[in-house]
């Protein structure tokens, strides 16, 4: 712990307060945009956030190239990234928790299970609990606010399983976790060409995943009648896979930045935190997908 005596403390910085301003604009803009009033503050906030984060990260990278942070500061970065990923895990936990709750408890109760017979009898007479919910309680009593899909995303049977998109997306994402690991290995052994190649493949796989998911969503909306408004099945399906897809976009973007940095020759065999952080994030996104594949698709 030789570096203990000179932990790098930056003098002063305009990045934080401008980032906070951008986040404030995003909050105001988000509130205005969802009410359909104006999208302008949201866009300005996004643009400002993009600019300031670009400057911030550039500065951190510059500091790193100059060797300002010692080993101890790098440990702080590692700890920071680790706990950030944990916070993301808990965010997904909320949505998985919602999925389990409605599947195991809420939907059966609406169907009259347990001591909830009168709920079914008085409020949703004729509703039968099933998952995926192919007929919403609303529809059963003649409403039209939540219209269930006529097809769902569950396992389509062995005869059609080769055309089942989530299966291919699983293959793509698991492969990408493996390729990013090979890239990491190559970097540690100073094999720069191999690093760039396999990181490039990983980014391409990420983009492919996003493309496949786009096709899947399109199919859901156009052919299956599966939308955000189609009751709790559509709700949980789109919110879980949607937030995951958003994280794939973020992860692909992060890895793409690392690829650019790799092509510029930024990393050293023993100094590659930017890449490592992105790859941990990527593995995390991959693990979430495995959870989604099991609980949203296979058991859906």
């Amino acid at each position: 712990m030789a570096s203990e005596s000179n932990y790098y403390v930056p003098e002063s910085s305009w990045f934080p307060v401008v980032t906070a301003t951008a986040m404030g604009l995003l909050a105001v803009g988000g509130g205005l945009a969802v009410q359909g009033r104006t999208g302008l503050p949201l866009l300005v906030g996004l643009a400002l956030l993009a600019v300031v984060l670009f400057c911030w990260f550039s500065t951190v990278i510059d500091e790193n190239m100059k060797g300002l942070p010692g080993a101890q500061l790098k440990r702080s970065y590692v700890i920071g990234m680790g706990w950030f990923i944990f916070s993301e895990v808990m965010f997904f936990a909320a949505f998985f928790g919602a999925l389990f709750y409605v599947r195991v408890l809420a939907v059966p109760w609406l169907g009259g299970e347990g001591d909830k017979a009168m709920t079914n009898e008085l409020l949703w007479q004729g509703f039968e609990a099933q998952w995926p919910v192919m007929q919403t309680p609303d529809q059963v009593v003649g409403g039209s606010k939540f219209v269930a899909p006529h097809e769902n995303m569950g396992f389509p049977g062995w005869d059609r399983f080769l055309g089942w998109l989530p299966l291919w997306n699983t293959v793509i994402l698991l492969t990408s976790s493996w390729t990013v690991h090979i890239a990491h290995h190559a970097l540690k052994h100073a094999n720069r060409a191999r690093f760039n190649l396999f990181l490039g493949i990983t980014v391409a796989l990420g983009l492919t995943f996003i493309g496949v998911q786009y096709v899947e969503y399109h199919e859901a909306y156009v052919e299956m009648g599966l939308t955000l408004q189609s009751g709790i099945y559509g709700t949980t399906f789109f919110m879980l896979t949607g937030f995951h897809g958003f994280h794939v976009c973020m992860g692909t973007f992060m890895l793409a930045i690392q690829l650019i940095r790799g092509l510029k020759g930024h990393f050293k065999p023993d100094d590659q935190f930017g890449f490592e952080a992105s790859s941990w994030y990527w593995h995390f996104v991959d693990v979430v997908w495995v959870g989604l594949f099991i609980f949203v698709y296979v058991l859906g």
């Binding site: 949505f95 809420a106 939540f146 709790i232 919110m239």
Partner: peptide, 24 residues
């Protein structure tokens, strides 16, 4: 996550907290 579910229920027609859609 909780406020995001609210946001979606209010503005985008999801049914996390609406029994009519199978939520609770």
């Amino acid at each position: 996550g909780a406020v995001t579910m609210m946001l979606m229920d209010i503005n985008f027609g999801t049914s996390f907290f609406d029994a009519a859609g199978g939520g609770d």
